[in-house]
Design a protein around this nucleic acid. Structure first.
Lengths: 97, 97
DNA sequence: ATTATATTTGCCAATATCTGTCAAGACAAT
DNA sequence: ATTGTCTTGACAGATATTGGCAAATATAAT
């Protein structure tokens, strides 16, 4: 399944004329991992987002948002009560502040 | 950390005058598991919700919503971009339909 | 205070999930 | 056919989650 995060990374990477292999090297992981991340087969570790943003000269917060949205979407995917649950959490989050 | 789901289960269980041990037996798990679930230390398996709802004479959808909301909340807990991500997913979910 | 009952907690082993690596395959371009 | 890039599947090690037991703690009654 494609992810917003993965698609954005690929977009940024190609815009910078970076090869998978090069980005992988900068992130110190195997090339295949990056490939999978861009295609939505794997998740990047949350902790790696800042470094990745720096390498791709991207906005950290944008990537964090996309990353988190993917996780959430993945969780509610196909759940019958997704709407209600989302509404409830949104409300609760606002109260927390 | 307390959960909406766990608190509701405890509420329903006591209202039915069921002991942990009795509910545990009906669900075929150890008493300690139910205790932990009610206190938010453990998650009930999604698949067990319908049976639980039946036992507690509760609305399945209500419990599913609470359960899912807990999972979501747990995921965005402390995330700086929680708001944005939630908004994004909510929008996407609506499109999916 | 002692007993009996209910609940909570810490710990362990089993299981499941995640992470990175490797090797083989697909795909283009030349 | 060779080269360079990307993709895929299988694997092993690391992590996380789960259920169960047993001990600790709480609660209630006498």
């Amino acid at each position: 399944m494609l992810t917003q995060f993965g698609e954005r990374i690929r977009e940024l990477r190609t815009k910078q004329n970076l090869l998978l292999r090069q980005l992988a090297s900068l992130l110190d992981v195997d090339t295949s991992i990056i490939s999978k991340i861009e295609r939505g087969d794997r998740q990047l570790k949350k902790e790696q987002i800042p470094l990745l943003a720096q390498i791709l000269k991207a906005d950290v917060e944008e990537l964090q948002t996309l990353w988190l949205a993917d996780q959430l979407y993945n969780m509610i995917q196909g759940e019958p009560m997704a709407d209600e649950a989302l509404k409830s959490v949104t409300k609760k989050i606002k109260k927390d502040k």
